[in-house]
Design a protein around this nucleic acid. Structure first.
Lengths: 256, 256
DNA sequence: AGATACTATTTCGTATAGTATTTCGAAAAG
DNA sequence: CTTTTCGAAATACTATACGAAATAGTATCT
Protein backbone atom coordinates (compact mmCIF):
# COMPACT_ATOMS: atom_id res chain seq x y z
CA UNK A 1 0.00 0.00 0.00
CA UNK A 2 2.69 2.38 1.00
CA UNK A 3 4.60 1.19 -1.98
CA UNK A 4 1.95 2.09 -4.52
CA UNK A 5 1.83 5.50 -3.00
CA UNK A 6 5.52 5.94 -3.61
CA UNK A 7 5.10 4.90 -7.21
CA UNK A 8 2.36 7.43 -7.73
CA UNK A 9 4.56 10.10 -6.27
CA UNK A 10 7.34 9.13 -8.63
CA UNK A 11 5.14 9.19 -11.67
CA UNK A 12 3.71 12.50 -10.66
CA UNK A 13 7.11 14.07 -10.36
CA UNK A 14 7.86 15.72 -13.66
CA UNK A 15 11.10 14.56 -15.30
CA UNK A 16 13.07 17.74 -15.05
CA UNK A 17 14.26 18.93 -18.39
CA UNK A 18 16.48 21.60 -16.93
CA UNK A 19 17.41 23.17 -13.67
CA UNK A 20 14.61 24.65 -11.67
CA UNK A 21 16.31 27.93 -11.02
CA UNK A 22 16.56 28.52 -14.76
CA UNK A 23 12.89 27.93 -15.22
CA UNK A 24 12.11 30.25 -12.37
CA UNK A 25 14.34 32.85 -13.99
CA UNK A 26 12.32 32.64 -17.19
CA UNK A 27 9.05 32.69 -15.29
CA UNK A 28 9.92 35.81 -13.35
CA UNK A 29 11.14 37.49 -16.50
CA UNK A 30 7.85 36.64 -18.16
CA UNK A 31 6.00 38.06 -15.17
CA UNK A 32 7.88 41.31 -15.59
CA UNK A 33 7.26 41.24 -19.30
CA UNK A 34 3.52 40.98 -18.80
CA UNK A 35 3.22 43.38 -15.91
CA UNK A 36 2.23 40.59 -13.59
CA UNK A 37 5.01 42.21 -11.66
CA UNK A 38 4.38 45.89 -12.25
CA UNK A 39 7.19 48.35 -12.90
CA UNK A 40 8.54 49.64 -9.61
CA UNK A 41 6.66 47.03 -7.61
CA UNK A 42 8.30 45.33 -4.70
CA UNK A 43 9.17 41.69 -5.11
CA UNK A 44 8.65 39.61 -2.03
CA UNK A 45 10.81 36.53 -2.19
CA UNK A 46 8.65 34.61 0.19
CA UNK A 47 5.42 35.38 -1.64
CA UNK A 48 7.01 34.66 -5.00
CA UNK A 49 8.31 31.31 -3.82
CA UNK A 50 4.86 30.38 -2.57
CA UNK A 51 3.21 31.54 -5.77
CA UNK A 52 5.57 29.59 -7.98
CA UNK A 53 5.40 26.65 -5.60
CA UNK A 54 9.11 26.32 -5.09
CA UNK A 55 11.45 27.03 -2.24
CA UNK A 56 13.31 30.29 -1.82
CA UNK A 57 16.61 28.99 -3.08
CA UNK A 58 15.88 28.98 -6.82
CA UNK A 59 13.98 32.23 -6.50
CA UNK A 60 16.99 33.88 -4.91
CA UNK A 61 19.27 32.67 -7.68
CA UNK A 62 16.87 33.87 -10.33
CA UNK A 63 16.56 37.29 -8.73
CA UNK A 64 20.32 37.60 -8.45
CA UNK A 65 20.61 37.03 -12.17
CA UNK A 66 17.75 39.37 -12.97
CA UNK A 67 19.46 42.04 -10.96
CA UNK A 68 22.60 41.51 -12.96
CA UNK A 69 20.46 41.92 -16.06
CA UNK A 70 19.21 45.26 -14.82
CA UNK A 71 15.62 44.07 -14.80
CA UNK A 72 15.32 44.11 -11.05
CA UNK A 73 16.99 46.35 -8.52
CA UNK A 74 18.20 45.21 -5.16
CA UNK A 75 18.50 47.36 -2.09
CA UNK A 76 20.39 45.67 0.70
CA UNK A 77 18.10 44.67 3.54
CA UNK A 78 15.16 46.26 1.82
CA UNK A 79 14.50 43.81 -0.93
CA UNK A 80 14.08 43.60 -4.65
CA UNK A 81 11.94 45.85 -6.81
CA UNK A 82 11.14 45.63 -10.48
CA UNK A 83 12.85 48.43 -12.35
CA UNK A 84 10.73 51.32 -13.48
CA UNK A 85 9.66 51.93 -17.00
CA UNK A 86 12.19 53.67 -19.16
CA UNK A 87 12.32 57.40 -18.71
CA UNK A 88 12.59 59.52 -21.81
CA UNK A 89 16.30 59.95 -21.17
CA UNK A 90 16.88 56.24 -20.72
CA UNK A 91 14.87 55.50 -23.81
CA UNK A 92 16.93 57.88 -25.88
CA UNK A 93 20.10 56.55 -24.37
CA UNK A 94 19.13 53.01 -25.19
CA UNK A 95 18.45 53.84 -28.80
CA UNK A 96 21.64 55.83 -29.03
CA UNK A 97 23.46 52.72 -27.93
CA UNK A 98 21.64 50.59 -30.44
CA UNK A 99 22.58 53.06 -33.16
CA UNK A 100 26.15 52.61 -32.07
CA UNK A 101 26.35 48.84 -32.23
CA UNK A 102 23.60 47.50 -34.46
CA UNK A 103 24.51 49.16 -37.75
CA UNK A 104 28.01 47.83 -37.21
CA UNK A 105 26.59 44.40 -36.50
CA UNK A 106 24.53 44.52 -39.69
CA UNK A 107 27.60 45.52 -41.66
CA UNK A 108 29.61 42.65 -40.24
CA UNK A 109 26.73 40.26 -40.77
CA UNK A 110 26.64 41.19 -44.44
CA UNK A 111 30.35 40.51 -44.63
CA UNK A 112 30.38 37.23 -42.80
CA UNK A 113 27.07 35.56 -43.38
CA UNK A 114 27.14 31.95 -44.53
CA UNK A 115 24.46 29.63 -45.86
CA UNK A 116 23.29 28.66 -42.38
CA UNK A 117 22.87 32.28 -41.47
CA UNK A 118 21.03 32.99 -44.68
CA UNK A 119 18.58 30.20 -44.02
CA UNK A 120 17.98 31.42 -40.47
CA UNK A 121 17.37 34.94 -41.67
CA UNK A 122 14.92 33.85 -44.31
CA UNK A 123 13.13 31.66 -41.80
CA UNK A 124 12.75 34.50 -39.36
CA UNK A 125 11.23 36.73 -42.00
CA UNK A 126 8.77 33.98 -42.84
CA UNK A 127 7.57 33.83 -39.25
CA UNK A 128 7.25 37.59 -39.18
CA UNK A 129 4.67 37.56 -41.90
CA UNK A 130 2.65 35.01 -40.00
CA UNK A 131 2.65 37.34 -37.02
CA UNK A 132 0.86 40.01 -39.02
CA UNK A 133 -2.21 37.82 -39.20
CA UNK A 134 -2.83 37.98 -35.46
CA UNK A 135 -5.29 40.26 -33.75
CA UNK A 136 -4.14 43.57 -32.36
CA UNK A 137 -3.02 42.51 -28.89
CA UNK A 138 -1.39 39.28 -29.86
CA UNK A 139 0.01 40.90 -32.92
CA UNK A 140 2.01 43.37 -30.90
CA UNK A 141 3.45 40.63 -28.75
CA UNK A 142 4.19 38.46 -31.76
CA UNK A 143 5.82 41.34 -33.57
CA UNK A 144 7.86 42.26 -30.53
CA UNK A 145 9.11 38.73 -30.24
CA UNK A 146 9.93 38.60 -33.92
CA UNK A 147 11.74 41.89 -33.62
CA UNK A 148 13.78 40.58 -30.70
CA UNK A 149 14.72 37.43 -32.56
CA UNK A 150 15.54 39.33 -35.73
CA UNK A 151 17.92 41.78 -34.14
CA UNK A 152 19.48 39.13 -31.96
CA UNK A 153 20.02 36.95 -34.98
CA UNK A 154 21.85 39.66 -36.85
CA UNK A 155 23.99 40.38 -33.84
CA UNK A 156 25.00 36.74 -33.80
CA UNK A 157 25.60 36.53 -37.51
CA UNK A 158 27.96 39.46 -37.10
CA UNK A 159 30.26 36.95 -35.47
CA UNK A 160 30.97 39.16 -32.49
CA UNK A 161 30.05 37.64 -29.19
CA UNK A 162 30.78 40.85 -27.38
CA UNK A 163 28.31 42.76 -29.50
CA UNK A 164 25.70 40.03 -29.35
CA UNK A 165 25.95 39.85 -25.58
CA UNK A 166 25.89 43.60 -25.17
CA UNK A 167 22.80 43.79 -27.33
CA UNK A 168 20.96 41.02 -25.58
CA UNK A 169 21.67 42.48 -22.22
CA UNK A 170 20.00 45.73 -23.09
CA UNK A 171 16.74 43.73 -23.04
CA UNK A 172 15.43 46.50 -25.22
CA UNK A 173 12.45 44.56 -26.48
CA UNK A 174 11.32 43.73 -23.01
CA UNK A 175 11.49 47.39 -22.09
CA UNK A 176 9.62 48.46 -25.18
CA UNK A 177 6.92 45.91 -24.63
CA UNK A 178 6.50 47.04 -21.05
CA UNK A 179 6.01 50.59 -22.24
CA UNK A 180 3.28 49.42 -24.55
CA UNK A 181 1.60 47.41 -21.83
CA UNK A 182 1.72 50.38 -19.50
CA UNK A 183 -0.13 52.40 -22.09
CA UNK A 184 -2.68 49.71 -22.51
CA UNK A 185 -3.24 49.37 -18.81
CA UNK A 186 -3.66 53.11 -18.48
CA UNK A 187 -6.27 52.86 -21.15
CA UNK A 188 -8.28 50.46 -19.06
CA UNK A 189 -7.88 52.21 -15.74
CA UNK A 190 -8.38 55.88 -16.39
CA UNK A 191 -11.25 56.78 -18.61
CA UNK A 192 -10.11 60.38 -18.60
CA UNK A 193 -7.14 59.62 -20.75
CA UNK A 194 -8.94 57.25 -23.01
CA UNK A 195 -9.03 59.64 -25.87
CA UNK A 196 -5.34 60.30 -25.97
CA UNK A 197 -4.12 56.79 -25.35
CA UNK A 198 -6.64 55.32 -27.72
CA UNK A 199 -5.19 57.67 -30.25
CA UNK A 200 -1.71 56.24 -29.71
CA UNK A 201 -3.10 52.81 -29.88
CA UNK A 202 -4.86 53.36 -33.16
CA UNK A 203 -1.94 55.27 -34.48
CA UNK A 204 0.36 52.37 -33.93
CA UNK A 205 -1.76 49.62 -35.32
CA UNK A 206 -4.16 50.98 -37.82
CA UNK A 207 -1.46 53.11 -39.37
CA UNK A 208 0.38 49.91 -40.01
CA UNK A 209 3.52 50.48 -38.01
CA UNK A 210 3.82 46.75 -37.72
CA UNK A 211 3.83 46.33 -41.45
CA UNK A 212 6.28 49.17 -41.75
CA UNK A 213 8.70 47.61 -39.30
CA UNK A 214 8.57 44.36 -41.19
CA UNK A 215 9.14 46.15 -44.44
CA UNK A 216 12.27 47.62 -42.95
CA UNK A 217 13.33 44.22 -41.76
CA UNK A 218 12.80 42.98 -45.25
CA UNK A 219 15.02 45.67 -46.64
CA UNK A 220 17.74 44.86 -44.14
CA UNK A 221 17.45 41.18 -44.86
CA UNK A 222 17.75 41.78 -48.56
CA UNK A 223 21.01 43.71 -48.40
CA UNK A 224 22.52 41.32 -45.90
CA UNK A 225 21.67 38.39 -48.14
CA UNK A 226 23.25 40.34 -50.98
CA UNK A 227 26.29 40.74 -48.77
CA UNK A 228 26.31 44.46 -49.20
CA UNK A 229 27.88 45.75 -45.97
CA UNK A 230 27.47 49.46 -46.53
CA UNK A 231 23.84 49.17 -47.48
CA UNK A 232 23.24 46.91 -44.49
CA UNK A 233 24.72 49.47 -42.15
CA UNK A 234 22.58 52.23 -43.59
CA UNK A 235 19.42 50.15 -43.62
CA UNK A 236 19.85 49.16 -40.01
CA UNK A 237 20.60 52.70 -38.98
CA UNK A 238 17.48 54.09 -40.55
CA UNK A 239 15.40 51.22 -39.21
CA UNK A 240 16.42 51.97 -35.65
CA UNK A 241 15.81 55.66 -36.11
CA UNK A 242 12.39 55.01 -37.49
CA UNK A 243 11.71 52.59 -34.67
CA UNK A 244 12.70 55.31 -32.24
CA UNK A 245 10.20 57.64 -33.82
CA UNK A 246 7.49 55.00 -33.68
CA UNK A 247 7.97 54.46 -29.97
CA UNK A 248 8.61 58.00 -28.86
CA UNK A 249 4.94 58.94 -28.41
CA UNK A 250 4.39 55.94 -26.16
CA UNK A 251 7.32 56.87 -24.00
CA UNK A 252 6.10 60.43 -23.74
CA UNK A 253 2.64 59.28 -22.78
CA UNK A 254 3.90 57.04 -20.03
CA UNK A 255 6.29 59.63 -18.64
CA UNK A 256 3.84 62.46 -18.90
CA UNK B 1 19.00 56.64 32.04
CA UNK B 2 16.88 54.82 29.56
CA UNK B 3 17.73 57.49 27.16
CA UNK B 4 21.46 57.15 27.40
CA UNK B 5 21.09 53.44 26.96
CA UNK B 6 19.18 53.91 23.77
CA UNK B 7 21.80 56.25 22.46
CA UNK B 8 24.50 53.73 23.17
CA UNK B 9 22.53 51.06 21.45
CA UNK B 10 22.10 53.24 18.41
CA UNK B 11 25.75 54.11 18.24
CA UNK B 12 26.73 50.52 18.71
CA UNK B 13 24.40 49.38 16.01
CA UNK B 14 26.63 49.00 13.02
CA UNK B 15 24.59 49.95 9.97
CA UNK B 16 25.85 47.12 7.85
CA UNK B 17 27.17 48.60 4.68
CA UNK B 18 26.17 45.68 2.59
CA UNK B 19 24.85 42.17 2.66
CA UNK B 20 26.91 39.09 2.90
CA UNK B 21 26.09 37.84 -0.55
CA UNK B 22 27.51 41.03 -2.07
CA UNK B 23 30.73 40.64 -0.17
CA UNK B 24 30.96 37.04 -1.25
CA UNK B 25 30.43 38.15 -4.82
CA UNK B 26 33.39 40.47 -4.58
CA UNK B 27 35.49 37.86 -2.84
CA UNK B 28 34.87 35.23 -5.48
CA UNK B 29 35.57 37.74 -8.21
CA UNK B 30 38.82 38.59 -6.51
CA UNK B 31 39.65 34.90 -6.30
CA UNK B 32 39.14 34.59 -10.03
CA UNK B 33 41.15 37.72 -10.59
CA UNK B 34 44.09 36.32 -8.70
CA UNK B 35 43.91 32.78 -10.02
CA UNK B 36 43.02 31.48 -6.60
CA UNK B 37 40.31 29.95 -8.71
CA UNK B 38 42.18 28.93 -11.82
CA UNK B 39 40.71 29.37 -15.31
CA UNK B 40 38.61 26.36 -16.20
CA UNK B 41 38.65 25.05 -12.64
CA UNK B 42 35.53 23.58 -11.13
CA UNK B 43 33.87 25.56 -8.42
CA UNK B 44 32.31 23.51 -5.68
CA UNK B 45 29.68 25.46 -3.80
CA UNK B 46 30.09 23.41 -0.69
CA UNK B 47 33.84 23.78 -0.53
CA UNK B 48 33.67 27.46 -1.32
CA UNK B 49 31.14 28.04 1.43
CA UNK B 50 33.37 26.28 3.91
CA UNK B 51 36.44 28.18 2.77
CA UNK B 52 34.76 31.55 3.01
CA UNK B 53 33.13 30.51 6.27
CA UNK B 54 29.59 31.26 5.21
CA UNK B 55 26.62 29.14 4.33
CA UNK B 56 25.74 28.07 0.81
CA UNK B 57 22.98 30.58 0.39
CA UNK B 58 25.10 33.69 -0.27
CA UNK B 59 27.56 31.65 -2.32
CA UNK B 60 24.77 30.51 -4.59
CA UNK B 61 23.58 34.05 -5.16
CA UNK B 62 27.08 35.25 -5.87
CA UNK B 63 27.69 32.48 -8.38
CA UNK B 64 24.41 33.20 -10.13
CA UNK B 65 25.51 36.78 -10.63
CA UNK B 66 28.98 35.79 -11.72
CA UNK B 67 27.48 33.50 -14.29
CA UNK B 68 25.38 36.35 -15.59
CA UNK B 69 28.61 38.33 -15.82
CA UNK B 70 30.17 35.65 -17.95
CA UNK B 71 32.93 35.06 -15.43
CA UNK B 72 31.69 31.63 -14.46
CA UNK B 73 29.91 29.05 -16.55
CA UNK B 74 27.18 26.81 -15.27
CA UNK B 75 26.36 23.38 -16.59
CA UNK B 76 23.09 22.00 -15.30
CA UNK B 77 23.62 19.22 -12.83
CA UNK B 78 27.35 19.37 -13.34
CA UNK B 79 28.22 22.52 -11.55
CA UNK B 80 30.04 25.77 -12.00
CA UNK B 81 33.42 26.26 -13.60
CA UNK B 82 35.52 29.36 -13.94
CA UNK B 83 35.62 30.49 -17.55
CA UNK B 84 38.75 29.82 -19.52
CA UNK B 85 41.27 32.42 -20.45
CA UNK B 86 40.47 34.44 -23.51
CA UNK B 87 41.26 32.73 -26.77
CA UNK B 88 42.91 34.77 -29.47
CA UNK B 89 39.58 35.12 -31.23
CA UNK B 90 37.80 36.25 -28.09
CA UNK B 91 40.57 38.66 -27.31
CA UNK B 92 40.34 40.23 -30.76
CA UNK B 93 36.60 40.32 -30.53
CA UNK B 94 36.74 42.05 -27.18
CA UNK B 95 39.04 44.74 -28.47
CA UNK B 96 36.97 45.16 -31.58
CA UNK B 97 34.03 45.85 -29.32
CA UNK B 98 36.00 48.31 -27.28
CA UNK B 99 37.02 50.09 -30.47
CA UNK B 100 33.36 50.34 -31.29
CA UNK B 101 32.15 51.92 -28.07
CA UNK B 102 35.03 53.57 -26.27
CA UNK B 103 36.09 56.14 -28.86
CA UNK B 104 32.46 57.17 -29.00
CA UNK B 105 32.38 57.37 -25.20
CA UNK B 106 35.49 59.57 -25.20
CA UNK B 107 33.94 61.83 -27.79
CA UNK B 108 30.78 62.21 -25.75
CA UNK B 109 32.77 62.70 -22.59
CA UNK B 110 34.61 65.60 -24.20
CA UNK B 111 31.30 67.10 -25.16
CA UNK B 112 29.54 66.70 -21.87
CA UNK B 113 32.16 66.81 -19.14
CA UNK B 114 31.51 69.17 -16.25
CA UNK B 115 33.67 70.41 -13.40
CA UNK B 116 32.99 67.34 -11.26
CA UNK B 117 34.06 65.08 -14.10
CA UNK B 118 37.16 67.14 -14.70
CA UNK B 119 38.17 66.84 -11.08
CA UNK B 120 37.61 63.09 -11.11
CA UNK B 121 39.65 62.68 -14.25
CA UNK B 122 42.53 64.71 -12.87
CA UNK B 123 42.40 62.75 -9.65
CA UNK B 124 42.56 59.46 -11.45
CA UNK B 125 45.62 60.53 -13.40
CA UNK B 126 47.28 61.54 -10.16
CA UNK B 127 46.81 58.09 -8.73
CA UNK B 128 48.17 56.57 -11.91
CA UNK B 129 51.49 58.24 -11.44
CA UNK B 130 51.69 56.90 -7.92
CA UNK B 131 51.18 53.41 -9.30
CA UNK B 132 54.34 53.69 -11.39
CA UNK B 133 56.41 53.77 -8.22
CA UNK B 134 55.48 50.22 -7.28
CA UNK B 135 57.58 47.16 -7.89
CA UNK B 136 56.98 45.06 -10.97
CA UNK B 137 54.28 42.71 -9.70
CA UNK B 138 52.33 45.21 -7.72
CA UNK B 139 52.84 47.74 -10.44
CA UNK B 140 51.02 45.64 -12.96
CA UNK B 141 48.10 45.15 -10.66
CA UNK B 142 48.05 48.81 -9.72
CA UNK B 143 48.22 49.84 -13.35
CA UNK B 144 45.49 47.41 -14.30
CA UNK B 145 43.26 48.81 -11.61
CA UNK B 146 43.99 52.34 -12.67
CA UNK B 147 43.28 51.41 -16.26
CA UNK B 148 39.94 49.89 -15.28
CA UNK B 149 38.95 52.97 -13.30
CA UNK B 150 40.10 55.32 -16.03
CA UNK B 151 38.12 53.70 -18.81
CA UNK B 152 35.10 53.20 -16.62
CA UNK B 153 35.23 56.83 -15.59
CA UNK B 154 35.22 58.04 -19.17
CA UNK B 155 32.35 55.73 -19.99
CA UNK B 156 30.38 57.31 -17.19
CA UNK B 157 31.32 60.86 -18.07
CA UNK B 158 29.99 60.14 -21.54
CA UNK B 159 26.58 60.26 -19.90
CA UNK B 160 25.42 57.05 -21.47
CA UNK B 161 24.41 54.41 -19.00
CA UNK B 162 24.00 51.85 -21.73
CA UNK B 163 27.55 52.30 -22.88
CA UNK B 164 28.95 52.40 -19.37
CA UNK B 165 27.13 49.20 -18.46
CA UNK B 166 28.13 47.46 -21.65
CA UNK B 167 31.72 48.37 -21.05
CA UNK B 168 31.78 47.29 -17.43
CA UNK B 169 30.19 43.99 -18.24
CA UNK B 170 32.98 43.09 -20.61
CA UNK B 171 35.19 42.82 -17.52
CA UNK B 172 38.01 43.38 -19.92
CA UNK B 173 40.54 44.32 -17.29
CA UNK B 174 39.85 41.23 -15.29
CA UNK B 175 40.42 39.13 -18.38
CA UNK B 176 43.61 40.92 -19.27
CA UNK B 177 44.97 40.59 -15.79
CA UNK B 178 44.21 36.89 -15.79
CA UNK B 179 46.15 36.50 -19.01
CA UNK B 180 49.11 38.18 -17.42
CA UNK B 181 48.87 36.02 -14.32
CA UNK B 182 48.68 32.91 -16.45
CA UNK B 183 51.93 33.92 -18.09
CA UNK B 184 53.54 34.55 -14.77
CA UNK B 185 52.41 31.22 -13.37
CA UNK B 186 53.71 29.46 -16.44
CA UNK B 187 56.98 31.17 -15.80
CA UNK B 188 57.17 29.59 -12.38
CA UNK B 189 55.96 26.16 -13.36
CA UNK B 190 57.66 25.25 -16.58
CA UNK B 191 61.31 26.05 -16.77
CA UNK B 192 61.32 25.10 -20.40
CA UNK B 193 59.39 28.15 -21.40
CA UNK B 194 61.20 30.45 -19.08
CA UNK B 195 63.17 32.08 -21.81
CA UNK B 196 60.23 33.06 -23.89
CA UNK B 197 57.92 34.13 -21.14
CA UNK B 198 60.63 35.99 -19.34
CA UNK B 199 61.10 37.82 -22.55
CA UNK B 200 57.47 38.88 -22.61
CA UNK B 201 57.71 39.87 -19.02
CA UNK B 202 60.74 42.04 -19.53
CA UNK B 203 59.36 43.38 -22.70
CA UNK B 204 56.27 44.61 -20.95
CA UNK B 205 57.90 46.23 -17.98
CA UNK B 206 61.39 47.22 -18.79
CA UNK B 207 60.32 48.60 -22.14
CA UNK B 208 58.04 50.87 -20.20
CA UNK B 209 54.70 49.79 -21.51
CA UNK B 210 53.23 50.94 -18.25
CA UNK B 211 54.60 54.43 -18.73
CA UNK B 212 53.44 54.35 -22.32
CA UNK B 213 49.89 53.46 -21.37
CA UNK B 214 49.81 56.26 -18.86
CA UNK B 215 51.19 58.67 -21.44
CA UNK B 216 48.30 57.73 -23.67
CA UNK B 217 45.88 58.21 -20.82
CA UNK B 218 47.42 61.60 -20.30
CA UNK B 219 46.86 62.48 -23.92
CA UNK B 220 43.24 61.37 -23.75
CA UNK B 221 42.71 63.27 -20.53
CA UNK B 222 44.14 66.40 -22.02
CA UNK B 223 41.85 66.52 -25.03
CA UNK B 224 38.80 65.63 -22.96
CA UNK B 225 39.58 68.42 -20.53
CA UNK B 226 39.96 70.69 -23.54
CA UNK B 227 36.55 69.49 -24.64
CA UNK B 228 37.81 68.52 -28.03
CA UNK B 229 35.52 65.65 -29.08
CA UNK B 230 37.20 64.68 -32.31
CA UNK B 231 40.63 64.55 -30.79
CA UNK B 232 39.26 62.54 -27.87
CA UNK B 233 37.79 59.99 -30.22
CA UNK B 234 41.03 59.63 -32.09
CA UNK B 235 43.16 59.48 -28.98
CA UNK B 236 41.01 56.77 -27.46
CA UNK B 237 41.01 54.80 -30.66
CA UNK B 238 44.75 54.76 -30.97
CA UNK B 239 45.15 54.02 -27.28
CA UNK B 240 43.04 50.89 -27.55
CA UNK B 241 44.84 49.77 -30.66
CA UNK B 242 48.18 50.24 -29.01
CA UNK B 243 46.88 48.41 -25.95
CA UNK B 244 45.84 45.56 -28.19
CA UNK B 245 49.33 45.39 -29.59
CA UNK B 246 50.85 45.43 -26.12
CA UNK B 247 48.75 42.50 -25.00
CA UNK B 248 48.78 40.42 -28.13
CA UNK B 249 52.05 38.60 -27.37
CA UNK B 250 50.73 37.52 -23.98
CA UNK B 251 47.58 36.13 -25.49
CA UNK B 252 49.57 34.27 -28.09
CA UNK B 253 51.85 32.81 -25.44
CA UNK B 254 48.97 31.56 -23.36
CA UNK B 255 47.10 30.09 -26.30
CA UNK B 256 50.16 28.62 -27.93
C1' DA C 1 34.48 -8.97 -22.70
C1' DG C 2 30.50 -6.41 -22.34
C1' DA C 3 26.25 -5.18 -20.43
C1' DT C 4 24.08 -4.44 -16.10
C1' DA C 5 23.66 -3.16 -11.39
C1' DC C 6 25.39 -1.05 -7.45
C1' DT C 7 27.73 2.66 -4.92
C1' DA C 8 29.75 7.10 -4.14
C1' DT C 9 29.88 11.76 -5.15
C1' DT C 10 27.94 15.93 -6.29
C1' DT C 11 24.49 19.02 -7.62
C1' DC C 12 20.15 20.82 -6.79
C1' DG C 13 16.12 21.76 -4.13
C1' DT C 14 13.37 21.72 0.28
C1' DA C 15 12.31 22.78 4.87
C1' DT C 16 12.93 25.21 8.79
C1' DA C 17 14.88 27.75 12.39
C1' DG C 18 16.92 31.84 13.88
C1' DT C 19 18.91 36.56 13.47
C1' DA C 20 18.96 41.25 11.73
C1' DT C 21 16.72 45.09 9.91
C1' DT C 22 12.98 47.82 8.34
C1' DT C 23 8.28 49.38 8.65
C1' DC C 24 4.41 51.09 10.61
C1' DG C 25 1.21 52.31 13.99
C1' DA C 26 0.23 53.76 18.54
C1' DA C 27 1.59 55.96 22.71
C1' DA C 28 4.12 59.66 24.71
C1' DA C 29 6.27 64.04 24.69
C1' DG C 30 6.63 68.76 23.22
C1' DC D 1 -1.64 69.20 16.78
C1' DT D 2 2.84 67.81 15.46
C1' DT D 3 6.83 65.30 16.38
C1' DT D 4 9.31 61.76 18.68
C1' DT D 5 9.78 57.41 20.66
C1' DC D 6 8.86 52.81 21.30
C1' DG D 7 7.55 48.21 20.18
C1' DA D 8 5.50 44.64 17.47
C1' DA D 9 4.89 42.64 13.05
C1' DA D 10 6.76 42.00 8.54
C1' DT D 11 10.47 41.12 5.79
C1' DA D 12 15.19 40.22 4.41
C1' DC D 13 19.06 37.54 5.25
C1' DT D 14 21.84 33.53 6.95
C1' DA D 15 22.60 28.89 8.69
C1' DT D 16 21.91 24.06 8.66
C1' DA D 17 20.30 19.63 7.78
C1' DC D 18 18.21 16.58 4.87
C1' DG D 19 16.62 14.31 0.64
C1' DA D 20 16.02 13.58 -4.35
C1' DA D 21 18.18 13.15 -8.75
C1' DA D 22 21.81 12.87 -11.92
C1' DT D 23 26.68 11.62 -12.97
C1' DA D 24 30.62 8.89 -12.73
C1' DG D 25 33.14 5.25 -11.30
C1' DT D 26 33.33 0.37 -9.80
C1' DA D 27 32.00 -4.14 -9.29
C1' DT D 28 29.24 -8.05 -10.64
C1' DC D 29 27.12 -11.35 -13.53
C1' DT D 30 26.22 -13.71 -17.78
Amino acid sequence: MAKSKVVVAKVKRAPRRSVLSDEIYDMIKAMIFEHEIAPGARVNIDALAVELEVSQTPVREALARLESDGLIAKKPLKGYTATNLLSMAEFNDLFQFRLLIEPWAAEQAALKIDSTGKAALKGEMQSAKAALKFRVDDQFQALTEHDARFHTLIAHISGSNSVANAFERTHCHLHLFRLFMANKLNLIESESRTQFVQELFEQYYQSGSGQLAIKEHDAITKVILDQNPKAARIAMHSHIESSLKRFSPSVKAVNK
